[in-house]
Design a binder for these strands. Structure first.
Length: 1068
RNA sequence: GGGCAAUUAGCUCAGUUGGUUAGAGCGCAUCAUUGACGUUGAUGAGGUCAGAAGUUCGACUCUUCUAUUGCCCACCA
């Protein structure tokens, strides 16, 4: 047995222990419990937008506690780690950082490839930080199964699901009013809106004098696009006009034709009871537009606001180019000038803002991709909406086994409410960081193709610096110059090799400088090189060997039209260049679907490939920047063949909502769409935890995707946790400046203390507070456990054995307690009540074990085996909560394998004896009462005093365990007496009377007061119980056991009362 | 506008099908401490369970209403 160091210093062992677990592959269920019953938890993937915060730390603690608990039960437990590319969140973040660095418009200045490269670099960095932080939290996840929502496997799943939904008619492209963030230049879904309340003005006016209506609006500028007036069909004032058309001229490009339409939802009481209908800029009005169209009574749709947030030409020459606020003022002025303005009124209104970009969104009509939540799924007879509902109510198709249990249950209501109000989900985004929509358009026949082909990731690597770069001359003819890499160039390549991800194949231009570069890669990556002359640098014609100055090569090309189709000065035409690059890369993609390929090539070729990939104009391609020598960027090409046979397709440039890929997480991480073992074994997953703020975003989407794709629920149980708040109850946020770095806390107090603090006080679904005092007290507690162990190791030489003989009442007591605690902890785990489980363990460890049993053990001696036994059990019970310290102590105990793969203690019910425990309680009670008297009379704690016991207690538990009382209450003599000695303090415990003869210190008055006070208390109690028992209806109606219990209480209390009374009498 | 949650000791919170003399931790007070642990121990003070009504033999617990706080949802233009 190793001695534990004197102080508990988590910094000394936590990192080593985690490394050891990893080295022994203990997080991998296939290593530890290959034959156990599968149990799986998926980590909600943190966004790669920054660093781990306290909320993540809480989630890690919760998941890991559950994982370690299940693993100790012998289950084949998988906790699968991963991260989320978080499309818009990440791009918004990186753009913000770039703007801070002085780049005003990153998208314009960088272009797609370069910005994506920036984002990717940021994301990868953030990812590796987060992963190391997860390790720091002690999370026992299986790193061999690490996933990323944006990696090749997950992309494959995304495309496959899109493909299926499209062919099932659940995904459609439609012209609809969507939420548009002008600042982010992208759509967002309804769920991504954050509603804020703000003051606004409600204006009332007429379109023209001829019109019998006045209308009210908060957005006068949109009225330039009005095409109807809606009234309630039962509104007597306006009924007669329904169906009529009015022509008004409010200054738009042409006069507006306004049809009066009826709509039930119009409130006749609000405003004037007539509503100007702007189908293009209001989702509700758009619905009216759709309805009118469906009814064969179409109205127009005029878009007067553009994606740039400015008025369009449709709005008329007076307004065109103005931003909305300026247009509003101008329109109001016009109304006033023409005596059409009636009134304005301050109202408060709710507006939707973009959760990532923060601006108020505009409603704009656009062509976007949607998931239809109401359409009937072929062969299923029900809609996605219905599937989502079934999964939480009856189970899918009524199968009770396919039902998600939500803890706490009240969140189900929230979920249903959301489903009921759900509209079609807009899944296309105009940002670049994300999964491209897997739709291709054919350049030959103009048709679109939705393909489930696996995309090939191509890393375009420019060769390292060559002689031509260093000495500035052009070289594209392999036969003319032997242009090799410089020393610097080779170094660049070696550096690039280190950064290279897993590669399946290498292709290279056959020019010397590329060849040389490729060879370095090939050697290091142990791959063969395929040479392709179509990857050669652009042909420079007559400029071969000369520096590119004056009227040289690039000047010639700058006159774009001159070499577009032709070959001025013998240079390669752009058409020829594009054709060979496209053909080469397409061939590669078809050769390596689903793989990552390194293509070593030249600057101009890389840029041309990039341009082709982005589907931008030839001239724009020419103006793209090169990658630097030795640098690379990646593009993804999916080998798609159009129905017409052409490979000449380009992909839709929109990307998918990030929640589309997150929704697939429960199965995409387990190998779907491939028929993997993991999918069979671990899906549906067993348990999932998440914060209530992502129930709509994530839980709902996972249920949608799983029930659609696999006709299964994604998880059997979902545990909803609350948010962490600071000590004042405020949210943690950067802007509030109250952020706490979990890693810093872990470093200072130890991860174990952090974990315990995070979950303490946490109940399902409720917010909890986090503050340093909590961490400190938990650290102190762990230190206590450390010292308990240290003491036991110092005093005991025993080895753990699964069964230990009991030598005394105290032994029986502690063993019974232990088993009862194990039982209770199991129950608390079953209810996901982690905080209480830890609380219970803490109580047992500190109060029962350390404060009582260890002290008793010092008196009774020879308890080595029991001490070790209990400690061993305790370490296993504590391990899910505080994995590091339990492992450290476990190893010191001489155990060879890890505590994390030992076994969860079994309840030995034969040992549990609650009655005996209750009987034993007299001993601590007696000791406490005596200590109490000592404290009251200020007796020096070191001084030993005598004790007399009324002899009627001779045959009790107390009489059998006097040695314990003697030592712990610091007594020098104990005798049984038949009468109370003179001048002594007395206490009553049930039927037992204890006397403490203290002639020299005793104060009769003080003693009288003390006893009187106690007598008063007990009298009150006796009376209340008596009243109850005298109440006939109580005796008649209450269950017998309750009445009997009250009777016992009464008798005991009464006896105590009599004894106290007697003692008080004796004092007089 | 609709909904959800919370309200228990100075602070943070338990209290799981109605029966407890309503608990814990921190803080506070008093005392102790060469001892496994001062990152400690012993002892104590402190609450009409937000308010009102109701159901019941019995309410912190169930019902209704009220108040305060927080959160979520929502197409009064």
């Amino acid at each position: 047995m190793k001695e534990l160091s004197k102080a508990y210093n988590p910094q000394e062992f936590e990192a080593d222990i985690y490394r050891l677990w990893e080295e022994q592959d203990l997080f991998n269920p296939d290593t530890t419990h290959p034959d156990g019953e599968p149990y799986s938890i998926l980590m909600p993937p943190p966004n790669v937008t920054g660093v781990l915060h306290l909320g993540h730390a809480l989630e890690n603690a919760l998941m890991d506690i559950m994982t370690r608990y299940q693993r100790l039960q012998g289950k084949r437990t998988l906790l699968l780690p991963g991260t989320d590319h978080a499309a818009v969140a990440t791009q918004a973040k990186v753009e913000r950082l770039l703007v801070e660095k002085g780049i005003k418009n990153p998208r314009e200045e960088f272009g797609r490839q370069k910005l994506l490269q920036e984002i990717r670099t940021y994301a990868e960095e953030s990812k590796s930080t987060i992963l190391s932080q997860i390790r720091k939290m002690g999370t026992s996840c299986d790193w061999s199964r690490l996933a990323y929502t944006f990696d090749a496997e997950r992309s494959e799943a995304v495309n496959e699901v899109f493909y299926r939904m499209y062919h099932d008619g659940l995904i459609y492209k439609g012209y609809r009013v969507v939420n548009w963030s002008v600042k982010g230049q992208s759509t967002c879904s309804d769920d991504e809106l954050v509603h804020i309340e703000r003051e606004a003005k409600l204006y009332t006016f007429k379109y023209s004098d001829d019109l019998p209506f006045a209308i009210s609006t908060t957005r006068p500028e949109t009225k330039l696009g009005d095409t109807a007036i809606a009234v309630n069909p039962n509104d007597e004032r306006y009924k007669k006009y329904i169906g009529e058309n009015f022509i008004v001229d409010v200054g738009a490009i042409k006069p507006l034709k306004l049809k009066v339409i009826a709509d039930e939802n119009i409130d006749p009481e609000f405003g004037t009871g007539a509503v100007g209908v702007t189908p293009a800029h209001s989702p509700i009005d758009f619905e009216m537009y759709e309805k009118q169209k469906a009814d064969g009574n179409p109205i127009d749709l005029i878009s007067v606001i553009g994606p740039d947030g400015q008025m369009t030409a449709e709005a008329g020459p007076d307004y065109h180019g103005l931003d909305v606020l300026a247009a509003r003022q101008k329109f109001i002025t016009w109304l006033k000038d023409n005596d059409l303005f009636i009134s304005e009124e301050e109202i408060s209104q709710n507006v939707g803002t973009s959760d990532r970009f923060g601006d108020v969104v505009e409603a704009l009509p656009m062509t976007q991709w949607f998931v239809d939540v109401n359409a009937v799924i072929p062969n299923r007879g029900k809609s996605l909406k219905l599937l989502m509902k079934e999964a939480v109510t009856t189970g899918l198709d009524g199968d009770k086994k396919k039902v998600v249990r939500v803890t706490p249950k009240r969140f189900e209501k929230l979920y249903f409410n959301w489903i009921d109000n759900l509209r079609d989900w807009c899944i296309s985004r105009q940002i670049w960081w994300g999964h491209r929509i897997p739709v291709w358009y054919c350049r030959d026949c103009q048709e679109s193709v939705v393909s489930d082909a696996k995309q090939c990731t191509i890393i375009l690597q420019r060769h390292g610096e060559a002689d031509s770069n260093a000495n500035d001359y052009l070289n594209s003819d392999v036969s003319k110059v032997n242009n090799r890499l410089t020393e610097k160039g080779r170094k660049q390549v070696l550096a690039a090799v280190k950064k290279m991800p897993q590669i399946n194949a290498i292709y290279s231009s056959d020019m010397e400088r590329a060849k040389e570069t490729a060879e370095i890669f090939a050697e290091k990556l142990k791959l063969e090189i395929e040479y392709d002359d179509r990857l050669r640098e652009v042909g420079v014609g007559d400029f071969e060997g000369s520096p590119d100055v004056g009227d040289g090569f690039n000047q010639t090309r700058a006159k774009f039209s001159a070499w577009h189709h032709d070959n001025p000065h013998g240079i390669e035409s752009f058409d020829e260049l594009k054709t060979r690059v496209f053909a080469s890369l397409t061939d590669i993609a078809f050769e390596h679907p689903g793989e990552t390929v390194l293509v070593v090539t030249h600057g101009d070729i890389a840029r041309t490939a990039q341009g082709l990939h982005e589907n931008i104009s030839d001239e724009d391609i020419f103006h793209l920047s090169y990658p630097d020598t030795g640098e690379s960027f990646e593009i993804k090409i999916t080998p798609v063949t159009c129905e017409c046979g052409s490979h000449d397709v380009y992909q839709d440039e929109y990307t998918l909502d990030t929640w589309f890929s997150s929704g697939l997480w429960p199965f995409s991480t387990l190998g779907w769409p491939n028929n993997s073992h993991d999918l069979k074994d671990f899906f549906p997953t067993s348990w999932m935890q998440m914060g209530y703020e992502i129930i709509f975003f994530w839980m709902a989407r996972m249920i949608l995707m799983s029930s659609y794709t696999l006709n299964e629920i994604p998880f059997k149980d979902v545990y909803i946790h609350g948010m962490l708040r600071d000590e004042k109850g405020q949210k943690f946020s950067k802007s509030a400046g109250n952020g706490i770095d979990p890693v810093e806390i872990a470093e200072k107090y130890g991860t174990d203390a952090l974990r315990l603090s995070l979950i303490s006080g946490v109940t399902p679904g409720n917010d909890s507070r986090f503050y340093l005092e909590k961490v400190e007290s938990n650290r102190n507690f762990i230190n206590k456990l450390w010292n308990i162990s240290r003491y036991i190791f110092m005093s005991s030489k025993a080895k753990y054995s699964d069964s230990v003989p009991s030598h005394s009442a105290a032994d029986d007591w502690i063993l019974s307690r232990l088993n009862r605690v194990i039982d209770a902890v199991n129950q608390l785990f079953a209810d996901y009540n982690f905080s209480q489980a830890a609380e219970l363990l803490r109580e047992f460890t500190r109060d029962d074990f350390a404060d009582w049993y260890l002290e008793i053990a010092k008196v009774e001696k020879k308890k080595d085996d029991i001490l070790i036994y209990i400690l061993n059990n305790l370490l296993r019970l504590w391990h899910p909560f505080i994995p590091f310290v339990t492992e450290a102590i476990w190893r010191s105990m001489g155990e060879k394998s890890s505590v994390m793969v030992s076994s969860w203690p079994k309840v030995k019910s034969a040992i549990v004896d609650q009655e005996f425990e209750a009987a034993f309680a007299v001993i601590p009670e007696a000791i406490t009462k005596i200590r109490n008297v000592r404290a009251e009379y200020r007796i020096d704690p070191g001084k030993k005093i005598p004790l007399r016991i009324n002899s009627n207690a001779k045959e009790t538990m107390l009489a059998d365990n006097l040695e314990i009382v003697k030592a712990l209450a610091r007594l020098d003599s104990i005798e049984f007496v038949s009468a109370k000695p003179d001048r002594s303090a007395s206490v009553v415990i049930g039927p037992i009377e204890l006397y403490i003869p203290l002639a020299e210190v005793i104060d009769i008055d003080q003693e009288k007061e003390r006893l009187s006070k106690e007598l008063e208390d007990i009298k009150k109690y006796v009376n209340s119980v008596k009243k109850k028992l005298d109440n006939k209806s109580f005796v008649d109606n209450a269950p017998k056991s309750v009445v009997a219990g009250e009777q016992v209480k009464y008798e005991e209390a009464e006896q105590k009362m009599i004894l106290l009374h007697k003692q008080l009498e004796e004092l007089k």
